[in-house]
Design a protein around this nucleic acid. Structure first.
Lengths: 171, 171
DNA sequence: ACCTGAACACCGTTCAAGT
DNA sequence: ACCTGAACACCGTTCAAGT
């Protein structure tokens, strides 16, 4: 059976979730799809592009709700983003790296900027969400492996930091 | 001549600055030191540890000034950190990655927490500085290579985001 | 203590050729 | 359009052995 680009992205996300970013190689993705490594290059010019497509898919369903106050809508986006990234192994690393590369050009940053009416505020909030979620996920992995003790406060810490940034944005 | 651990870290930083993180391999570092790849493992257990030592050295001279208001001292740390990371190629990536892994355990986070009297505030500020600086550096590289147009506003954008977070921290 | 030499099990990417 | 097969130029890490 022929694979489509969507199949390739799905296959890559499967490898990511079961083996982690470190082992998410073009060769592994190819073998998960039952295909030679070189076949992937028919769908994608390079690995970086594949990672960007994976990032897009991870956050694809994150949108601002239509009603609520500005603050409520912004918080919903931040929590949705965090949950989406945490829902897949190393998701935060994948999304944060891809997003750092196109700051200002991401759909979510525009969404957030529209909700808040503040481009700098949107960027600041987004960078915070990426950074904290990445740290949370790395920390969880490390404590699962046993190199660090678990920090049960990370979710509360996220909300407290979010509150700090939102307070700075209040008009 | 025998190499010390410090020599290895210096050599690695040299390779990083001239070739970038992508090409900062154990093999290249070894060859820059005039030594076989396996020799590095006498000084360092693995590449990840070497990257952490490089990160420590990049930010080694960043400290809070002794006088000034709380806000002034915190801003000085943030700017010092940003400048230190931008002073070497891919420095922000190296520092941010190493720091995400030990959130709460870094010296700068403690420094900042002491200055601000607020652990969550320190973490929030730090994540913002890492994220924005990483995006700035990636963006500059991409525009130097020509894949993105340059954004001359990135430095001003950094200060505006910093002001937002500081405002959220005001008591 | 610091290093060599050789090996192991991998990488991303290219390219001619097949269907 | 989608894929194979083979190759190129690399990786990180281990380990016995040398000085």
């Amino acid at each position: 059976m022929s694979n489509s680009l969507d199949d390739v992205v799905s296959g890559a996300l499967g490898v990511l979730d079961t083996h982690g970013l470190e082992f998410c190689s073009m060769r592994r993705v190819a073998s998960a799809l039952g295909v030679q490594p070189s076949a992937l290059y028919h769908h994608v010019p390079d690995k970086q592009t594949l990672l960007a497509l994976m990032a897009d898919r991870i956050v694809a369903d994150v949108h601002a709700p239509v009603d609520g106050s500005r603050e409520q809508r912004a918080l919903a986006v931040c929590h949705g983003l965090r949950d989406a990234m945490l829902s897949i192994r190393d998701g935060a690393d994948v999304v944060a790296t891809a997003s750092a590369f196109r700051l200002g050009a991401s759909g979510i940053e525009s969404d957030l900027a529209e909700v808040l009416g503040d481009r700098d505020g949107a960027r600041t909030l987004l960078l915070y969400v990426f950074g904290h979620t990445q740290a949370t996920q790395d920390h969880r992995l490390a404590s699962a492996v046993g190199v660090l003790e678990a920090d049960p406060d990370l979710d509360a810490s996220f909300d407290r930091g979010l509150a700090i940034v939102m307070r700075g944005l209040a008009d």
